[in-house]
Design a protein around this nucleic acid. Structure first.
Length: 271
DNA sequence: CCCGATTCCTGTAGGC
DNA sequence: TGCCTACAGGAATCGG
């Protein structure tokens, strides 16, 4: 499930082959993603040079010499680096083919991902206009979370997963961050002190940074993997660990559905 | 406007 | 072993 660290890992994996390259071809085998890939995209980007590949929220932002692309991995999207000798598999929906002959192949079994063309600056695209702060930037602080939460009524877990508040935090890292900060996921976001929000903001930064570092170790094998950082899974303290002992107090980890998402927490350490 | 519920999709896991 | 159902979740959209 690509959250911020997985998107960063993906970008790091494709950058060596994509940045500076000219897009020789785009082969679309399945255009029905989250939004249909527009029919003329191949014509639009053929011959375009890839200037840079960046991240905004969970989007991969490809800056071209004419316009750009917004790519979202949805839930199961991933890229792998290959060549024209390999046969695309069932859910390999499109390939970028560079002037060096490298095939950058997109796979997405559930098709929740998207490939969007932007005529102009992709950062001006409507999809990016309502996004909240980047969690790893300096302006994302406990104070910010505190002020944003005052008029809200939702559970804190839903609040930090709201992409108009802070971006990049999905279901897994939300559970992990709240555990690190000692905050119960069901607590109303308006009933959390500024000092606890400071702890939470720091926890989010730490969890995401650690995971990026773990994902970084998989970049070497990127061409052969599905792009997911398998290493961070071993670091998870609560996610998916229902019924297993809390690493801090030994009490068994609980789980319940909050805002339609399964949530994991320690009833003793989180209040 | 706010926020919970629903929807899209398919591989996987678990029950019988 | 095989069939069936529940579940996984990012984010747009719906509806109260």
């Amino acid at each position: 499930m690509p959250e911020l660290p997985e998107v960063t890992t993906t970008i790091n994996g494709i950058r060596p082959y994509f940045q500076g390259a000219v897009i020789a071809d785009l082969v679309i085998r399945e255009k029905r993603l989250r939004w249909p890939i527009r029919a003329d995209l191949k014509q639009r980007i053929q011959g375009c040079k890839v200037i840079d590949i960046q991240r905004r929220a969970k989007y991969i932002v490809v800056i071209l010499d004419r316009g750009g692309l917004l790519i979202h991995l949805g839930m199961t999207g991933s890229f792998r680096i290959t060549n024209s000798q390999t046969t695309p598999e069932k859910h390999d929906h499109f390939d970028f083919i560079t002037d060096a002959g490298v095939v950058i192949r997109y796979r997405d079994p559930r098709r929740f991902g998207s490939l969007i063309f932007c005529e102009e600056d992709p950062y001006q695209h409507e999809r990016l206009s309502k996004l909240g702060l980047e969690p790893l930037e300096a302006d994302f602080t406990g104070k910010y979370l505190y002020h944003m939460s005052r008029a809200r009524k939702m559970a804190v877990k839903a609040f930090i997963m709201d992409q108009s508040v802070v971006v990049g935090v999905g279901n897994i890292y939300a559970s992990e961050s709240l555990f690190l900060a000692g905050i119960h996921p069901r607590r109303k976001c308006s009933r959390i002190s500024i000092s606890r929000y400071q702890k939470l903001a720091n926890a989010i930064k730490k969890i995401l940074t650690n995971s990026i570092d773990m994902g970084g170790t998989t970049i070497q094998n990127f061409a052969g993997t599905d792009g997911r950082p398998g290493y961070f899974e071993q670091q998870l303290l609560v996610y998916g660990r229902v019924g297993k002992p809390c690493d801090y107090c030994g009490r068994l980890i609980s789980s319940q559905v909050i805002a339609q998402r399964s949530s994991f927490y320690c009833n003793q350490c989180q209040t």
